[in-house]
Nucleic acid binder design. Structure first.
Lengths: 153, 153
DNA sequence: ATAGCGGGAGCATACGTATGCAGTGTTTCC
DNA sequence: GGAAACACTGCATACGTATGCTCCCGCTAT
């Protein structure tokens, strides 16, 4: 044994979050490539211990992902939740995206946007129920508005 | 065939969100109890079409859940995200829970708490970076603080 | 009417995952 | 040191899930 269980777990988390892994044998191959040689049985146990979830991607193909709990601090998740819950409308106007929300939620949304590190978000300004999102260009603003609109539903 | 595919899908969503279903045969049984008799093969296809995810509960037991996308409007999800992302500290004080957050996030947190419909949340009052959560009793406040603290990490 | 098409579902089975058991190595406590 | 307890893993296999094939039904155009 060259790699301990804990290191293997880190490795699995890393692999799974970087590429689509649909079966435990695929994962096994990836681990072997990284110099970690174990059997499927071990991987099955690892997966339970890590709490990995098996989902389907947009094409219905299987995929393991990190447990939801582990993604709780992911800025993208936060934006999804806060925007899905409190967002009302999005509209581009020049190189600005105007985002309307439930009263009081705007600062949180703006903060979530800031933390995204999104290329098309230059900066944000929040009121009580409105966020102005400044984009680099009109074109970017339109794209961004579309992206945010998709989250709203 | 008495139930169409669409109705069966609704039924599956309902069952899966109400109780822990660990295998497709368990789900099959539940459907039969609801007067819908199909085979495991059909359920396998349904599960892919619905995009259900197979996770592990806190004891490592398997469980199907609705896809993450479908839970985006779940108030509990919103609270998790917003609190996990922006929450700082929680402390009970009398029958009040004092919640400190990142600047500006308090109103969103308060809103998320309100929408929970939680028995121990009588009402909330939000400043910029502080939420006061009013609980029915000191006991409730302590319990509530513990619950919220768990979300923070 | 009927031939042709497409969706839905069952059956059998291939594919994928979990687990009882046994073996090995490590730590702990006499 | 030696025994006991424990953690980790592989092997074989039981368990669980996906899918190729087929049939059936309902629709449409001929």
């Amino acid at each position: 044994m060259q790699l301990g269980k804990a290191e293997r777990h880190r490795l699995i988390e890393s692999v799974v979050s970087r590429k689509r892994v649909g079966t435990q044998f695929e994962l096994l191959d990836a681990l072997v490539d990284s110099g970690c040689s174990v059997t499927q049985a071990t991987i099955s146990r690892d997966i339970r211990e890590l709490g990995l979830e098996k989902t389907h991607d947009q094409f219905g193909r299987p995929r393991y992902v990190l447990p939801h709990a582990a993604r709780r601090n992911d800025p993208a998740e936060a934006l999804n939740a806060v925007l899905g819950q409190f967002g009302r409308t999005v509209a581009p106007a020049g190189n600005i995206v105007v985002l309307q929300s439930d009263l009081g939620a705007a600062p949180a949304i703006a903060r979530a946007l800031d933390q995204l590190g999104h290329d098309r978000v230059v900066g944000t300004l929040a009121g009580d129920d409105t966020v102005l999102v400044v984009a680099p260009s009109e074109r970017d603003a339109r794209t961004l508005a579309r992206e945010l609109g998709a989250i709203l539903g």
